[in-house]
Design a protein around this nucleic acid. Sequence first.
DNA 1: TAGTGGTCTAGACCACCCG
DNA 2: GGGTGGTCTAGACCACTAT
Lengths: 234, 234
Amino acid sequence: MSTPRENLSYKDIKRVVLERIQKRIWAPDSLLPSETELAEEFSSTRTTVNRALRELAEEGFLERKRKAGTRVLNAPLRKAQFTIPQVSDEITEAGKTYRYSLVNRALIDMPSWLSAKLATKATQQVLYIECMHFADNAPFQYEVRWIMPKSVPAALDADFREVGPGSWLAQEMPFTDLEVTFTATKADQQIAEFLDAREGDPIFTTQRTTWLRAQPVTHARLYFAPGYKMTTRL
Amino acid sequence: MSTPRENLSYKDIKRVVLERIQKRIWAPDSLLPSETELAEEFSSTRTTVNRALRELAEEGFLERKRKAGTRVLNAPLRKAQFTIPQVSDEITEAGKTYRYSLVNRALIDMPSWLSAKLATKATQQVLYIECMHFADNAPFQYEVRWIMPKSVPAALDADFREVGPGSWLAQEMPFTDLEVTFTATKADQQIAEFLDAREGDPIFTTQRTTWLRAQPVTHARLYFAPGYKMTTRL
DNA sequence: TAGTGGTCTAGACCACCCG
DNA sequence: GGGTGGTCTAGACCACTAT
């Protein structure tokens, strides 16, 4: 005999459904009752049940198809969500003092690898920037960035001596698409010097490319000091 | 004069609102009209507008507070979502052939670093597993894993000769909490041999720990062959 | 073609919280 | 206190797709 309470919210329903999945009452690959049936069981409405199931599907527990119904995923495609932070925020939130320093700023011909990567003509110049981010005066991140003046003409007037290109762009330039890549790279002599590391040290590296409606805006390579960890919990 | 179409879906509304944010029609930190007003403008209902704004808030563009209203975030906290894949899926979806191989399986005393990490008593034994994942017969990932028999007694009866512990656990063992960490590490001699790499090569490394309601289930270290990239686009 | 989820409407009550 | 978003209800039509 179940004890059906009244006035279940969509959150309550999510919790109950998740429990049944985890207790294998609804086993992997099995089919859940239809929204209409569940609405009846919970003495709720289909709208409410729909929201609960929709969110559980977004979170990777369920697969939903019209006509086929709602199925428990066998190997839950758990999804980890990272907020893409500003370096300065990341450092400040760790309780450390943030300091920024510009290393290099130049207008250069677009490297061919970059025009290939961005699928643009190489016959233009790009704004090239190198800078450092420190946490409590220790090197935290070495940033190398290319900005497309065609997309961001205002960048040509910014000197980036006080404000990092990351925060500047976040304030000034909206973007619609973002690609992020994480790799492990080897510190070359230059990177090692900037990060107080030894040549050959493994360096956690992030690459970010952003577009504004198919038009490339910027490409950045972020080299983190040895020991950096990116963590997420869910 | 605007051209208000009829029958806008919540997706249409999301698109329009996002455009206005990106075109600075609604500038950072500014307040949007209330749901009721927007519903009127789009000749829609508050329910539909609510869903559009709610999702934009989840995606990090807006901040919503009762009474205070809906505000455009100045530095959009873009969120990247990674699906945590099964190695086998990752390889198969890249169009390559997956092969699994068990390297080592033993019942050992729990290392003290592990009991510290998991906040458990060290006076128990753990199942220790090493294995390899190949893509087209090339080393793809070297996996080292510790499984808590207290949480997963059935693991003691599995030999893991045919099925990897990752897929086995996904099938057999639900979990409620997951912590993922990404780092760059240096290949030691053992790792280098398993991954066909050279000693000292930078290795992209993932650590995963899972719990079932505060009870630790498993801890895994995944070492990827040199050149591995983790990419996400949004 | 029939059944399922996807979505919209119109209305309502409520919790929160700024002024 | 009053306005805002958060959520629920009851009903409807529609899109997709398995069979």
